Simulated assay, not measured.
Amino acid sequence: MTLIYNLMLIFNGKWHRLKAVFWYRFLFKKIGKYCVIKNPLKITPESIILGDRVSIGNNARIEGVQHYEAEKFDPKIILNDGVTIQQNLHLTCAESIEIGENTAIAANVTITDIHHPYDDIHLPIEQQNITTKPVYIGEECKIYNNVVIMQGTKIGKHCTIGANSVVSGYFDDYCVIVGAPAKIVKKYNSETEIWEKI
């Protein structure tokens, strides 16, 4: 039984890699080597650039929004080399979202560069024009389960974001970020070479 299970795992991994090579490479704006994309819910490949060795888990929604209400957009989603994403990512982009090399994203994470204004009380919120601000996540970060990353957020290199955090704003390199709203609770001191509480 274990042998059959292991063979199924090997076949399943190879199948998703073959799909990337023989199917997705004709659809994506650019796709690197050794990428794996497992059973996405929704994906708009014409808006996406993948580096090498990018792995996207099951049920991902990675959507470039090209028009909303009366406005048109030119979304750019960039997942650099070595980005790994677990199941149920919800990423919506109308302007720009970039994730740096070797960043790991856990399950059920939301990332968006879109805000739905609620200024006009005579219109439902979903029917009002959206606003956008680019999102950038630096290299070598670890983003834990159920994190929400909002429009205009910039996260530096080698940051850890704790589970269930709601992240908005600018965060330096080498930080531990937690909470809703998220705040820096630790930062690496390059002089003492110690992670220090803030």
Rank of each mutant, 00 (worst) to 15 (best):
P75F: 01
E95G: 07
V135K: 01
F73G: 00
N6S: 09
G162Y: 10
K187N: 08
Y170S: 12
K157R: 15
E69P: 08
S47E: 06
K197W: 10
E193T: 04
K29M: 02
V109C: 04
Y188I: 04
Q66I: 08
I77Y: 09
G152Q: 08
I114D: 02
A180Q: 13
L41M: 14
Y144A: 14
N88A: 06
N145I: 05
D113W: 08
A106I: 05
P40V: 03
I10S: 07
G100F: 05
D120I: 04
K186A: 13
K38C: 10
Y170H: 13
V36D: 02
K187D: 04
T192G: 06
D172Q: 15
T112G: 03
A70P: 04
V178A: 06
K133S: 13
L18G: 03
C35H: 06
F73M: 08
S96C: 13
S190L: 12
E140C: 09
W23Y: 15
F73K: 06
F26L: 12
E69M: 15
S47A: 14
H90R: 06
F22W: 04
E71V: 02
I198S: 11
R53C: 08
I161N: 03
L79S: 00
G162F: 13
V54E: 12
N59Y: 09
Q151C: 12
R17K: 12
C159P: 00
E98N: 13
K33W: 04
I99A: 01
D120H: 08
W15M: 14
I4H: 07
I97H: 02
S55P: 05
K157M: 11
F171E: 12
W15V: 12
A70Y: 02
I130E: 03
D74F: 07
G32D: 00
N12Q: 14
F11E: 09
K42I: 12
K30S: 13
D173S: 07
D52V: 08
I184F: 05
W23F: 15
Y24I: 01
I97S: 04
K38Y: 11
S190Q: 13
E63S: 05
T2R: 00
D74A: 11
A20M: 10
H67D: 13
W15C: 13
Q128A: 10
L3S: 10
P75E: 06
T192S: 11
L27Q: 11
K42D: 08
G169D: 02
K42W: 07
L3V: 13
R25K: 14
D172F: 11
I78R: 00
C159S: 06
S55H: 14
R61V: 12
Q87W: 05
T132V: 15
I49S: 09
I99P: 00
I37A: 05
I155G: 08
N189G: 14
N145Y: 04
R17L: 05
G138D: 06
E69N: 15
S168H: 09
S55K: 07
A107R: 14
K197G: 01
V147C: 05
E63G: 01
K14H: 03
V176G: 03
N58Q: 12
K33Q: 09
G152W: 02
I130V: 13
T103A: 07
K142D: 02
T84L: 04
E71P: 01
K19S: 10
G32Y: 06
H115E: 15
F28L: 10
G156R: 11
I194F: 06
T110P: 00
T103L: 07
I85E: 02
Y136K: 14
E126Q: 15
V148N: 11
K133W: 05
F73C: 01
C93F: 08
E196Y: 04
W23N: 10
H115N: 15
